[in-house]
Design a protein around this nucleic acid. Structure first.
Lengths: 338, 338
DNA sequence: CGGTCGAGTGTGACCGGTCACACGGAGGTA
DNA sequence: TACCTCCGTGTGACCGGTCACACTCGACCG
């Protein structure tokens, strides 16, 4: 019937093996109701024919595809790209195809379009990278029946009834700030990344350390995801001679701040110490090498896959323990000149 | 029938509109054989019901899904990530879902697995990012009936009968080298990225400029994609006092080379000039800001989508003109000390 | 020795679309 | 008026799997 040179179907396998298509289906689904010899025989035929089950057909009558779709507002920025990498790796070992859909903005139309996109059965399980307002908005807009989990900023998002997974950045931010304080700095300034809440993550840990040391808490300067805005923030701080230590919201910001400092004639770490966040590959090779906090974004992505798989299969939620973000001390932080 | 609270199907729409499911199908496929009033009525019902066509069902009987699958060996490195970004954007405006599948290595088993993965109809059109041996191997292993195009290194790959799209890096590399020569350097050294051939791209342009200037052509140092290997290459060159100008295969390499130079007590650009390739965001904020070549990876990704869409629809191949890579002169290149 | 049970297997319908083809009616032509 | 066309629409089958259910046959039971 269909055998003519096109890709073989389950019925071709059945015909060649001398069994019914249902039996082949059972073998594919590892049903116990098949005699071992029959199973082996079918497996042999599958191999001989080079048969591969058709994902679309399977998705069609299972209602939902065995797949993972990632909703994210960016794919190039280090943190996002790394989470995606972790998701892809984990999904691949699970045998799940991975789809990507970028959320351009947090505008209502775009958010709705993104949410509708994953309403389709072929999207499978959904992972929303909700590090920003756009991601958070989509997470909220998702139809309740869509199986989804989210990678969020530290602490998760309030008012959303979804499994949320995040890296606990607060202790590391606290430690980084303590590190600078311990070097003798009177206080530590902070250039923050754009954030929905900022109450649980990097900024919170920084504040913790300052408060526990009984040291003045400078006002936070906020930058965007683009380096240019970080540079402007850096210029602001560079102009202030009282600034001797800066905890930067991420490594890109640290890069721009270092540049601004340099232009203002202030040496790093001689005059000002800076600490980043993320540990992008390469920052160990900066001059000076950057003291920063290593983040396990890849592990976060992997954990999301585990969670969404559990969500789909209805299995109990796995206990996910992620490697803590960790301070890596290099050259960009040192004692202040007195 | 199926209407009970689950997602509406084409038959639900048909029933509510008082037409046959075929008519609804025709409306969806913009067939001219539908009376305008009927079409509008059906469209209204679709809207009212919030009906979305099921991608899996469509893929099932169309034979191939309306989708794009990207095969790549990396998703985090700047060039790869940026191509992916361009693909995603272009595919999104075409209404095509995007899938990702990473090729872990160029090992036979992995290459075969990747090629088989896109053999499935639900993969749709395939874009192979063949910047490296793994990608090239998969491109060669693809079943001929799979509609695929490739983003390759400059010049394309020989012996592969696929549409290949690439950025012509040679003129820009030549220009960058001329720029350094023009500043007064006796010659320019080169740290190359890993490459399959290296006969058409960055390295070739570098060689062109050196030969046309009648200047000695130093032997090429090759680095890997990781910063550590670039650093080792940099150390090698830094030890040689005759080296005063280095064209780096990409910005990551430039970063590591600059570090190596710094450790050897050689100033950039005072003692040694360096030029990168790619123009990663942020390199304008390095200290010194990096002279580099801006690459339109995103446009490359977009062009791949146009090409693969043409491949699927059987339309004539569009003429694709990509913005040329362009030298951006900043601070890391200057005149040599005499 | 007939009845029950369960293991192993097969048949039919169905998932949600699309293609091939049939069909009724309006309009044009002979 | 009879016939052919073409437009707009409907019916049936099918894509490649899976589920629900039926069936056969041997083992075990009373």
């Amino acid at each position: 019937m269909t055998q003519s040179r096109s890709v073989p179907s389950i019925r071709d396998v059945a015909a060649m093996a001398g069994v019914s298509y249902q039996t082949v289906s059972r073998v594919l689904n590892e049903s116990p109701r098949v005699r071992p010899e029959t199973r082996q025989h079918v497996l042999d035929v599958i191999d001989r024919l080079g048969y591969r089950p058709n994902r679309a057909a399977r998705a069609l009558n299972l209602g939902r595809a065995g797949a993972v779709t990632v909703l994210t507002s960016d794919t190039v920025l280090y943190g996002y790209a790394r989470v995606l990498q972790g998701i892809e790796e984990a999904a691949r070992v699970e045998g799940l195809p991975v789809g990507i859909r970028v959320i351009e903005s947090d505008g209502a139309a775009e958010v709705r379009a993104a949410a509708e996109y994953v309403g389709d059965a072929s999207a499978g399980g959904v992972i929303v990278v909700a590090f920003d307002p756009a991601g958070a908005a989509v997470l909220r807009a998702l139809a309740p029946e869509v199986p989804a989990v989210a990678a969020t900023e530290a602490g998760g998002l309030s008012g959303v009834d979804r499994r949320m997974i995040y890296l606990d950045e607060r202790p590391a931010a606290r430690e980084a700030t303590r590190h600078l304080l311990g070097l003798g700095h009177a206080t530590v300034h902070h250039v923050a990344i754009p954030s929905e809440t900022g109450t649980m993550g990097r900024q919170a840990g920084w504040r913790d350390a300052l408060e526990e040391a009984g040291v003045p808490v400078p006002s936070v300067v906020t930058a965007g995801w683009d380096v240019a805005s970080a540079y402007r923030a850096g210029c602001e701080l560079a102009a202030d001679r009282a600034v001797t230590a800066i905890l930067c919201g991420n490594d890109d910001i640290a890069l721009a701040v270092r540049r601004a400092l340099h232009e203002a004639g202030r040496d790093v770490p001689g005059d000002v110490s800076i600490v980043g966040f993320d540990d992008v590959p390469g920052c160990a090779y900066w001059t000076p090498a950057l003291t920063t906090v290593r983040m396990n974004f890849e592990g976060l992505g992997r954990a999301c896959v585990a969670a969404v798989v559990a969500e789909i299969t209805g299995e109990p939620q796995p206990l996910i323990s992620l490697e803590e973000p960790q301070l890596v001390i290099r050259e960009s932080s040192g004692a202040p000149v007195l």
